[in-house]
Simulated assay, not measured.
Amino acid sequence: MQDPLIFDGHNDVLLRLHQGDVSAGLDGFQGAGGRHIDLEKARTGGFGGGFFAIYVPGEHSHTNDMDEMLKPSYDLPLPPQVEWDIASKVALSQASSLIKLERDGALKICRTTTEIQDCMTHGLMAAVMHMEGAEAIDPDFHTLDVLYQAGLRSLGPVWSRPTIFAHGVPFRFPSTPDTGPGLTDDGVRLIRKCNDLGVMVDLSHLNEAGFWDVAQISTKPLVATHSNAYELCPHSRNLTNHQLHAIRDSDGMVGLNFAVAFLRSDGRMIEDTPISAMLTHLDYLIENLGEDRVGLGSDFDGAVVPAGIKTIAGLPNLRSAMRNHGYDDPLIKKLCHQNWLRVLDLTWT
């Protein structure tokens, strides 16, 4: 059940390495010392690669957040905006970690879909350098130009806290994603710059007003790398039907987020969540987007995922569940990696 290989829309490996001893972390990643993702688990699970997020954690501790997200309702306060001089150092450190992994032969930073396909053919993990929250990008885009040359090909203007470009959604349940103002003037410029460079714009974490601003401005398909359906889980992080249909009409796509709080109808971060909850969201996304516009966006190493998956070594359980649910092989292949390659082809050219 390791076939087809899975190309995934989001992981937080670089944050995990940044928060630990980087040299030990790199060794652990290449052995079996990782949490959700390392090379040994990748081989077991048939993990072909995905989007490796650069994320600036800030000073806020998330220790108590998980306890709050066990409650029937919650509204976690957003941490303050992180200034560029702090964020840029963290971003460069995490980009450096990804480059070191490439240098050591653990993966390849891919800039084209041909490179991704070549990696998957030859058993080398394919990595797209992604930025989750653009705190490290200055308004003159000097940092963006440098990171683009290093391989950055996907960018979300925000994590949940605000940036100089946009406003994110809080971790709030129940809540719609309509939580604040849209893009700033610099945010409008950022979207156009990403379009010009061929950097995919990620709408996950962006609030609804910002989503519609991007939909109006962008010339590329609308993509949410790790988001789910609001109608099934009324969480601010999830996408309404109106948003899903706009993504469909742009020929974009959505990557299913494995984080249980965005899967469950009660919005609670409970690991004992069945894989069937993932299939319910996949069914809904396919119904509203079409089978060519849905993929996987796990949030591995950054979220609590269903116990039946646990780590990327558990991905065969997801494939088996898809088959038992009635998905045929061509559809499973689309969901596992073909749809990501399709939308990246449209975005990067």
Rank of each mutant, 00 (worst) to 15 (best):
residue 206 L to N: 09
residue 242 H to G: 14
residue 261 A to I: 10
residue 163 T to P: 03
residue 148 Y to L: 13
residue 145 D to H: 12
residue 187 G to C: 13
residue 215 A to K: 12
residue 232 L to R: 15
residue 177 P to L: 03
residue 159 W to M: 05
residue 254 V to M: 12
residue 137 I to S: 00
residue 203 L to I: 13
residue 137 I to C: 00
residue 248 R to F: 02
residue 197 L to I: 09
residue 157 P to F: 12
residue 278 M to H: 06
residue 259 A to N: 07
residue 208 E to L: 10
residue 153 R to H: 07
residue 242 H to R: 15
residue 187 G to H: 14
residue 140 D to R: 13
residue 255 G to M: 11
residue 258 F to Q: 07
residue 259 A to M: 08
residue 142 H to K: 09
residue 172 R to W: 09
residue 171 F to P: 02
residue 270 I to V: 15
residue 173 F to Y: 15
residue 148 Y to W: 13
residue 162 P to F: 04
residue 183 L to W: 06
residue 138 D to F: 00
residue 251 D to T: 08
residue 177 P to F: 01
residue 254 V to T: 11
residue 171 F to K: 08
residue 277 A to K: 14
residue 143 T to R: 01
residue 145 D to W: 05
residue 196 D to E: 15
residue 202 D to Y: 05
residue 276 S to P: 02
residue 151 G to P: 05
residue 279 L to N: 12
residue 276 S to Q: 15
residue 216 Q to L: 11
residue 199 V to Q: 00
residue 227 S to H: 07
residue 277 A to I: 02
residue 153 R to S: 07
residue 221 P to I: 13
residue 280 T to C: 06
residue 269 M to G: 11
residue 239 L to Q: 03
residue 157 P to D: 09
residue 225 T to W: 12
residue 152 L to Q: 00
residue 268 R to Q: 15
residue 179 T to W: 04
residue 249 D to G: 11
residue 267 G to Q: 09
residue 195 N to A: 04
residue 222 L to V: 04
residue 168 G to M: 10
residue 203 L to N: 08
residue 233 C to V: 13
residue 166 A to W: 04
residue 214 V to K: 03
residue 262 F to H: 07
residue 228 N to K: 05
residue 168 G to E: 06
residue 279 L to W: 06
residue 252 G to I: 08
residue 163 T to E: 02
residue 224 A to F: 13
residue 219 T to C: 10
residue 267 G to S: 12
residue 151 G to F: 07
residue 164 I to W: 04
residue 255 G to C: 09
residue 151 G to Q: 11
residue 247 I to G: 03
residue 157 P to T: 02
residue 245 H to I: 15
residue 279 L to G: 07
residue 132 E to S: 13
residue 139 P to N: 09
residue 156 G to S: 14
residue 240 T to L: 15
residue 254 V to D: 07
residue 172 R to I: 05
residue 206 L to K: 05
residue 155 L to C: 02
residue 201 V to A: 04
residue 258 F to D: 05
residue 195 N to G: 09
residue 257 N to A: 10
residue 153 R to C: 13
residue 152 L to N: 03
residue 186 D to T: 12
residue 237 R to S: 12
residue 165 F to H: 02
residue 141 F to N: 06
residue 233 C to K: 10
residue 233 C to L: 13
